[in-house]
């Protein structure tokens, strides 16, 4: 079997200290192969977002290791780490984190700006992704003036603009009506199937979870083998 793109071993994460101490993750191990589509399913507060942040190298675990394409993440230099965040990973946050006073185009082009891409290429590439997500006509609008579903798509466009190999999406359809949610889902699966992007998605929606190749269930910071609630 080839080297997994992401491998986690015995991850723990503890927030706070003393009486406020809370163990959000209690020893999570998993492997994700290149090109897989994986759903992370669990109740609210079970630690799904925390796990995603660790896997995307946005936060550091209390103990345990993460290997990215065979490399131990802790050994990465700051520069390499930033390059990974910028080009290897795309992240769709549960809250959108759009800059409301900037235009949609500027929001989407931000990762390219950070990467040092020139203004013309930035604009071209950002418009391309926006077209792909049926938002070409909103490029010049202020991000604040969009509907929830449009914002969700802008955030996905921003995650995709730098052609990442791994796309993390934290409840990408949670804020959407069924029809729009369906469109966004189709876009994500299309990327997974046709562009070979590894897709890691957090969801509450069991119907949606069934569309993924693999599901990872989490409860109280630990992985469980099956969806007990629904099995029951």
């Amino acid at each position: 079997m080839s080297v997994p793109i992401l491998a986690a071993r015995d991850l723990t994460k503890t927030y706070g200290r003393g009486p406020d101490r809370f163990d959000a993750l209690k020893g999570v191990s998993l492997e994700i192969q290149r090109g897989e589509s994986v759903a992370i399913v669990g109740k609210s507060g079970s630690g799904k977002s925390t796990l995603m942040h660790l896997l995307a190298l946005l936060d550091t675990p209390g103990t345990g290791q993460i290997h990215v394409d065979g490399t131990e993440a802790q050994d990465l230099s700051g520069r390499r780490l930033n390059a990974l965040r910028n080009t290897l990973f795309g992240f769709v946050f549960q809250q959108f984190f759009l800059n409301p006073s900037s235009s949609v185009l500027e929001n989407v082009a931000l990762p390219l700006k950070i990467a040092g891409v020139g203004p013309r290429d930035r604009k071209r590439r950002a418009l391309e992704v926006l077209e792909q997500l049926h938002l070409g006509d909103k490029a010049k609008n202020k991000a604040a003036h969009l509907s929830g579903g449009q914002k969700q798509r802008v955030v996905i466009a921003r995650a995709l603009v730098n052609n990442p190999q791994v796309l993390f999406a934290d409840e990408p359809t949670g804020n959407l009506d069924t029809a729009t949610g369906r469109i966004v889902e189709d876009i994500l699966f299309d990327l997974n199937r046709n562009s070979g992007i590894t897709l890691i998605t957090v969801t509450h929606d069991h119907e949606l979870a069934q569309r993924f190749e693999r599901r990872i269930y989490i409860r109280d910071g630990q992985l469980i083998t099956s969806d007990e609630e629904h099995a029951a």
Binding site: A56, L58, G78, R79, N82, A83, L84, R85, N86, T87, F91, F97, N99, L110, P111, I114, A115
Partner: peptide, 16 residues
């Protein structure tokens, strides 16, 4: 703060 967090999450270095 959030904007800085976002930019760092997208790979902006501390130096920048």
């Amino acid at each position: 703060t959030r904007e800085i967090g976002l930019m760092k999450a997208m790979g902006m270095g501390s130096g920048s």
